[in-house]
C-alpha cells in the first residue's frame, strides 16, 4: 500500500510538472508572433466589422457613432 501511495504522489508531481512546463512554454510565445499567426490565419476568410444604425457606440472601423457593431457579412447569429 505504501508503494501505491508513493506511486500516486510521484504521478501527481510529474503531472503538475508537465502542465507547468507547457504553460511556461506558452508564455514564451511573443504577442507579435501571435498577431502574425492571427493575420495569416485570417487570410481570405477575414470577417469584416459592420457598424449599423445610429447610436452612441464608436464604430472602431469608421469612427461613426452607431447602434451596434457586428462581425461578418450576416446578422444571422443575432437572430
Amino acid at each position: 500500500m505504501k508503494k501505491l501511495s508513493v506511486f500516486l504522489f510521484l504521478l501527481c508531481i510529474v503531472a503538475i510538472g508537465a502542465i507547468k512546463k507547457q504553460s511556461s512554454h506558452q508564455d514564451k510565445v511573443s504577442s507579435l508572433l501571435l498577431y502574425n499567426i492571427e493575420a495569416l490565419a485570417a487570410g481570405e476568410t477575414m470577417r469584416p466589422v459592420r457598424c449599423l444604425g445610429r447610436g452612441s457606440i464608436d464604430c472602431p472601423a469608421s469612427h461613426d457613432k452607431v447602434d451596434y457593431v457586428a462581425e461578418g457579412y450576416s446578422l444571422e447569429k443575432w437572430r
Binding site: L4, L8, F9, C12, I16, I19
Partner: peptide
C-alpha cells in the same frame, strides 16, 4: 483501509492539481 486512504490521497492530489491550474 489502506486502499481507501490511497484513493482519498489521489483525490486530494487531483484537487490540488486543478486548483493550481
Amino acid at each position: 483501509t489502506a486502499l481507501k486512504s490511497g484513493v482519498s490521497f489521489l483525490f486530494l492530489c487531483l484537487l490540488f492539481l486543478f486548483s493550481c491550474n
